[in-house]
Amino acid sequence: MKVLGLLETQDQKFKKTAYEVLMAGRRINELTGGSLSGVVINGDAGAIAEAGAYGLTDCFNVQSDLLQNNSSMGVARAVAQLAEDRGFDALLLPATAAGKELAPRIAIRLQAGLIADTINFSLDGEHLVASKPVYAGKAHIRAKIETPRHVYTIRPNIFTARKADSPATPAVTDFSPQLSENDTRAGVTDVTRATGALDVAEAEIIVSGGRGMKGPENFYLVEELAGAFGGAVGASRAVVDAGWRPHAEQVGQTGKTVSPNLYVACGISGAVQHLAGMSSSKVIVAINKDASAPIFQVADYGIVGDVFEVLPKLTERVAATTGA
């Protein structure tokens, strides 16, 4: 298949998801043959050149002043025009806030089927099949798209970005979409980022606290351990509902579904809704004084003990290992 991957940027640099989309594209090429191109919106030449290290050989740079406002409507239409113009068969987008807003619009424009939150690709005969978690990861489905064109969003932290054996110098083609102001309604007027805080959806290591932390004043223990790991702070639904922690940190079925390399659950018993949100983490550590807590059923490593005694010691040991 001729695959086009949307390369997401922040402050003119490619985000990690851009390289993950390239990895997913390479996976499709391995299965079906074909080619892989990237597309970036008002991209920076330096950043595109750097992406050669991750196997980007061919990149379209969509140039449009109307897209400076990052309107999802406008970006979707520009990418759909490029896909039609150059005859791409499959479009890949990251399953991020931006990608989730764009992919359904692109699918409608291209009369294409869409599978969201893909975690794997395989073949059914010659037909490409995508796997995705459903019911917050309590089950997975394998599904196929019946239309000639395909659109997929790629779940973050699954297709691990790896540098190519030999870096490429990407060939860059500028593309000018046909857009009017009517196509770029709903523009982003401001972006505020939580200063210094890493988001659970993007973090490779997450340290989460639950009711066992006994109160918001004790979360510094979770924060310090997260700091020693260089990870993000997460929280269970119970502590978010109690107002101890912001909703942005909530992991679980009604919060964020995460798949970090390491998930450390501190004083979290492991309600089915919480397990759904984090059980696809690559390595899980549970610290809980109740040895029968369900969290231990999904944990690779468990410490049965009191978080108030264990966390300070663990923080010290981790910091000594990571040098944080």
Partner: peptide, 16 residues
């Protein structure tokens, strides 16, 4: 446009 081939429960984890 999309058809589901199969639904599966994720593989159970080994005891940690």
């Amino acid at each position: 446009r999309v058809s589901v081939i199969a639904m599966e429960n994720p593989p159970a984890k080994n005891q940690g």
